[in-house]
Design a protein around this nucleic acid. Sequence first.
RNA 1: GCCUGGGUAGCUCAAUUGGCUAGAGCAGCCGAUUUGUAAUCGGCAGGUUGUGGGAUCGUACCCCACCCCAGGCUCCA
Length: 578
Amino acid sequence: MSEKEEMFDTRHTLSHVLAGAVSELYPEAKTALGPPTETGFYYDFDFGDKPIKEDDLKRIEKRMKELLGSFGKMEEKKVSEKEAREYFKDNPYKLELIEEIVKEGEQITFYSSDKFTDLCGGGHVKDPGSIPSDSFTLSHIAGAYWRGNENNKMLTRIYGLAFENKEKLDDYLNFLEEAGKRDHRKIGKEMDLFTFSELVGPGLPLWTTKGTALRKAITDKIQEIQGKYGFESVTIPHITKMALYDKSGHAEKFGDELLMVKGKDSEFALKPMNCPHHTQIYASRPRSYKDLPVRLAETTMVYRDEQKGELLGISRVRSITQDDGHIFCTPEQAKEEVLNVVKIIREFYTLLGMYEKGNFRVLLSTRDPEEPEKYIGTDEQWKDAERQLEETAKTQGLPYEIGEGEAAFYGPKLDFMFKDAIGREWQLATVQLDFGMPERFGLEYVDKDGKKKTPVMIHRAVAGSLERFLSIIIEHFAGEFPFWMAPVQIKVIPISESQKERAEEINEMIKENGYRSRSDISDESLSKKIRNTKKQKVPYFLVIGDTEIKNKTVTLEGREGKVGEKTETELLTFLKEL
RNA sequence: GCCUGGGUAGCUCAAUUGGCUAGAGCAGCCGAUUUGUAAUCGGCAGGUUGUGGGAUCGUACCCCACCCCAGGCUCCA
């Protein structure tokens, strides 16, 4: 058995110990479900009308530790439906599970120790007494709907962290603490990148001058790359008549997520996506097969009335800036176009040093075969498109997995998933095939044979949402952005008042050469000015004293220390090569 | 939206658990200093303790409602 599987069993067993401890301390509580997780385990309970508090965790944890030694061996026992029902007659959750197992035609098993019996499929360490009592801890409680369905009752979930031993647990706790230091909300505030106002509203970030410089550096870079692949920019209004979404099918899909704007005599919707608008640019004139592919790109904000509890920093917001793009092409061209988008994504994330194995994974999001009515398009189209995407993923060596039921309603997609500082996964880049919308909008092109045909539409985004993308890279770089991206790239620091003028002169010179430079001519000490520069994570700074004035040079310094004394020309050459 | 926590100056935190005028540091402003590599010194200002109600002789602290934030759940075109 691998170490990972063994840990899985340990965590699973601990969830039983947790349930055992809770059952003892709170006899009224009903146990529901409790699986292991990546970092520990949890168990869901129904505490009835006497919910527990965060403070109670200490008590439960203490009892768990006491119980470990006397918990006894985990023994499997096959039981009949009748026995099972009898044993759990007061527990509606277990009864529901038993019913399901019976329906599936599977054997019901109990796992019992001296202290506690649970309905369970197995996967335990034989002797819970062998688990070190300081290798786990209960971390927090949270609400969770029974069976993950929001129409069901909300249960109380107790989360625990568990590792091989105390050292590993401490390592993880330490990791969480370190991760907290790179939290994009903290760094965003420290570096003055964005802010929120209660007057403006939750989920609506306001971008400062520095944050905007950062955003522009990124979107310029994306445009530079995608420009090589034939994308051209377009511009659309942020509102539309509902007619557009009635036709696209989004109206039905979106419902209350749409934000409405009332005009004098008509009502508009704030756009929650850009594709329908872009189809209308395509549809504005007759297209020949010779015009295809048409590749439209636009970095623009969309607005979604997300549920409040889902908002999170700039990872999940209500005003979302998408670096969106839509390709309209012939069915024959689709594969090549998807490939090109993958290349754009690869080039961009490679530049960031984020395209490394293990740093991301790709989700091939397919249709849920159980619910075909949720999607548009024929079986044939779906199979074909899914196969096409999978082929591209394979030939491009993408670390992909199938995400069944994760597809958009109009087609399958490749989603590029990246992790934030504490390991939560977020979708950034995406390529989506769509054979529904062109048809709905009656898009067409005239083919070689003179016949009108329906083009394929490909949706794509490189950063995805600029907000979410920034949340990830702020945490990835802990604010220490690569030079080309840094909101302030260079700081010019005179040692004392007498070099102020020269510092300003150098600062202007650098700015004229297209870099984001600032001078610090405050009356602070050199040490203080350097400290501030480092705190702001500015990649390079120049020190100017009497020596530099005499030599007509600047002293260049970066994050790794002193680079050296350079003339203006040398400096510009150096910056150019970064 | 739901569950559980939280909200004190721009930021980081304090206030002996219901009892003197809510205090520090940093940032800001004023003054002195003119600095050679991660905090120069002094002064000033800064608060309706998230908001609104209530209980109390008295509340940052107790109760109610709402707002905002976080960790989860649900959702994520």
